[in-house]
Design a protein around this nucleic acid. Structure first.
Lengths: 341, 341
DNA sequence: CTTTAGCACTCAACGAGATAGAGTGCTAAC
DNA sequence: GTTAGCACTCTATCTCGTTGAGTGCTAAAG
C-alpha cells in the first residue's frame, strides 16, 4: 500500500514527533541521515501521506504530525521490535529483589517501576482470582456478637470481613457449620462454590439453614467481590510532564478519570492475549481520547491472570513501552509462579 | 493587639481572597455591608496591617493578600465556629449508609467524601493498630513447602502473609507450635508481643526453637508492619482546580509528592489531639509550602486511633473544612466503634 | 518520469508600544 | 478621626509590525 520511501518518511515523522512534540517539517527529515532526499521530494510525499490520512497539518504553514491512522500504521507495521535497555533490566531486578510479602506487593511494585521507567502512567490489574479455589474457611470470634470470617485461596490470597454472629447459634454449632463448609468446599473452584452452596450444603444443614444465612452470604459475597480485579495506579502525575497536557484543564480531566480506579477496568480489552495497543479514540472512555493505552497480560501456565498497562499521550514511545511490557509481564508471571511453587 | 476595626477588615480581606483568589482592594471591602467605612479609611488600616505583617502586596498598585501571619491570626482568632451544611450531612450519611466490609472501607470512604465535599485533597491515616492486641494466630498450609500465616487482632483487623515452611517440621509439630503461640499470646497487646516472644516462648519451645525462627519472625514482622499506618488519599486532582496551581510545574511538584504516600505520614503532627492547622511553611515538606493542612484525630474511648486531614492551598476555606473535619472525625469514630461493639 | 532548486505565500509566535483600569498613598478639607 | 480628591504606579491587554519556519507550485535538471 505504501511505498518503501513513504514508510521511511512516515517512520521518521512519527519518531521525530514522539521525541519533540512539535510538528515535523520536510527540512528536518531531509537532514536526518536515513532519508537522503531533498526537502522538496519529501514535501511531495508528505502531501501524499496527508491525502491518504496518515498525517495532519495543525495549520497551513506548519510541519506535519501523525494522525491516529498514522500512529496505527506505525504501531502495526513500522515499529522496531524494541528490546529493553540493560540498565532498565538491572533496575527491575533490583526493585524486585526487595522482599515482598503479598502478591499485592508484587503487583504494586510492578506498577511503580513501570511508571518510573517510562515516565508515563501505569495501570495494573491484579490477578483474576475467580478461577482460584477455596483452601480454607474460618470464623474467628471477636466477642459475643461479632466474628471475622477468613477465606484462604489455593493461591495464598486471603480475604476477610467482619460479620455479626446470628442470634441463637452457640460456639459449638458455629464450629460444626464451619467444619461442614470446609469439608464440602475446600478445593472447589470459586465459580462453582455458589452452586455447591445451594445444592449439597443447603440440604446437609437442614434445620440450621435459616440461621446460617448470614454466614453463607458472607462467603458468597467475598467470592463475588473477587470478580472485580484490584487496580493499581502509579505515576498519574507523570501526565503533567507531557506538553500536550500543559493546559491544566485537560490534565485535570484525565487525572479525575484516573482517580476513579474502579472504572478503569473497562478500559482493558477482555480476554485478548499478548500486547494490545489502543490509540486515541480507540479507547472506551472519552476523557482519554488524547491518550494511548498499551496493555499486556501476565499469564501462569497459559492462564491469563491479570493485565499490566501503560497510559500516555498518543505521542508515546510505543517501541520502548511495548518491549518493556513484554519483558515485565513475563517477569511478573514467573515471580507469582515462584510464590505458588 | 488589633483593634476591632482592624480585625473586621482583616477578616473581610481573608474571606474575600479565599473566595476570589485575587488581591483585595479597599473599595471592594468598603462596598461590603459589614464594614461601613470609606475606602480611604480602609486603606489606612490596610497600610497598618501590612506594616504589622498580616498583609502583603504583590505589587504597588495591587490590592492586598493575607500573609502567613495573616492566615494564622485568622485561623486562631477570627474564624467562625463553622457548622456543617445540612446538605453535606445528608451526603455523608448517605455515603456511609453503603455497607462496608472492612475498616479500610470506612476510612477509604471517609477520604472520598471529604475530597468531594471540599474540593480539596484529603489524606487519611488508618487506625494505629499498635495498641491493639492479638486475638488469633494461625497457619494455613498451601502445599508441602508454603503456608499462609494469619493474624487477627481484637479490633477485627486481619494481617496475613505467605511464608515457607521450615524443613524438618511436620504438620503435627506445626500445630503444636501454633497452639503454644496462641496460648501465650492471645490478649497480649502488640507492643508487648515481642518481649513475650523472646522470654517465655523461647524457653517453652526449647529444642524446637531453631526451626521455628521463621514462624516467629513472620509474626514479629507482621506486628512491626502495623507501626506504619496506611495512608488513604483522595482528590489529589482537585489541586489542579486551584488557580494558584494553574502552572503545571507547580502542580506536578505537589502531585509527585502526594504520590509517595509513604512519606505523607511525616506531615502529620504526632500525638496532638483536636484540630490542627498547619499553614504554608509550617508544614514539614518543602513541596507543600504553598499549602495548608488541617488535621483531626478520630478517637475511640479517648484513645486516638488515626487522623483525617485536608490539604489545600493556603487560601483555603478554613472555617468550612474545620467544621467538616470535626463532624466527620466524630462520625468515623462512632462508626468504627459500632463495628467493634 | 523523477528529483530538485527557487520563490512567493501563509501563518503562528514574538516583541514593542500604547492604552485602560484597578488600586494605592498623600494631602487637605470636613 | 474620617473622607474626598488627585496624582501616581503598575499590570494586563490589545494592536500591529516583524520574524521565521514551512508550505505548494513551477520550471529546470537528471
Amino acid at each position: 500500500m505504501l511505498s518503501e520511501r513513504q514508510r521511511m518518511i512516515l517512520t521518521a515523522i512519527v519518531d521525530d514527533y514522539i521525541r519533540s512534540a512539535e510538528p515535523v517539517g520536510s527540512r528536518s527529515i531531509s537532514k536526518r541521515g536515513d532519508v537522503s532526499f531533498s526537502p522538496a521530494t519529501i514535501r511531495n510525499e508528505m502531501a501524499d501521506l496527508e491525502e491518504l490520512g496518515f498525517l495532519e497539518q495543525p495549520h497551513t504553514s506548519a510541519g506535519r504530525i501523525p494522525s491516529h491512522k498514522g500512529y496505527r500504521y506505525y504501531v502495526d507495521h513500522l515499529i522496531a521490535p524494541g528490546g529493553v535497555r540493560e540498565e532498565d533490566i538491572r533496575k527491575i531486578r533490583a526493585f524486585f529483589a526487595e522482599k515482598m510479602i503479598h502478591w499485592e506487593d508484587v503487583i504494586g511494585h510492578a506498577a511503580t517501576i513501570l511508571s518510573h521507567l517510562t515516565n508515563y502512567t501505569s495501570i495494573v490489574l491484579g490477578p483474576e482470582m475467580f478461577s482460584a479455589s477455596l483452601k480454607h474457611f474460618q470464623l474467628v470470634p471477636l466477642n459475643d456478637s461479632s466474628a471475622v470470617a477468613i477465606i484462604v485461596t489455593n493461591t495464598g490470597h486471603v480475604e476477610h470481613r467482619t460479620m455479626t454472629i446470628p442470634e441463637g447459634i452457640d460456639v459449638g454449632d458455629l464450629g460444626k457449620i464451619v467444619g461442614l463448609l470446609n469439608d464440602k468446599l475446600v478445593g472447589v473452584p470459586f465459580h462453582r462454590v455458589k452452586s455447591v452452596l445451594y445444592s449439597e450444603i443447603a440440604r446437609e444443614l437442614g434445620r440450621y439453614m435459616d440461621r446460617c444465612e448470614e454466614i453463607l452470604s458472607v462467603l458468597e459475597q467475598s467470592i463475588e467481590e473477587q470478580k472485580d480485579p484490584r487496580v493499581f495506579l502509579s505515576g498519574a502525575a507523570n501526565m503533567l510532564a507531557q506538553p500536550e497536557f500543559k493546559d491544566v484543564d485537560k490534565a485535570k480531566l484525565i487525572l479525575d478519570t484516573l482517580e476513579e480506579t474502579g472504572k478503569l477496568t473497562q478500559l482493558f480489552p477482555a480476554g485478548l492475549g499478548g500486547i494490545q495497543v489502543k490509540i486515541g479514540t480507540e479507547n472506551a472512555m472519552e476523557a482519554i481520547n488524547q491518550c494511548s493505552l498499551i496493555t499486556a497480560n501476565y499469564t501462569v501456565d497459559g492462564q491469563s491472570l491479570g493485565t499490566i498497562g501503560i497510559l500516555g499521550p498518543t505521542r508515546m514511545e510505543y517501541g520502548k513501552v511495548i518491549g518493556l511490557l513484554e519483558f515485565l509481564s513475563r517477569d511478573i508471571a514467573s515471580m507469582l509462579n515462584r510464590r505458588l511453587k
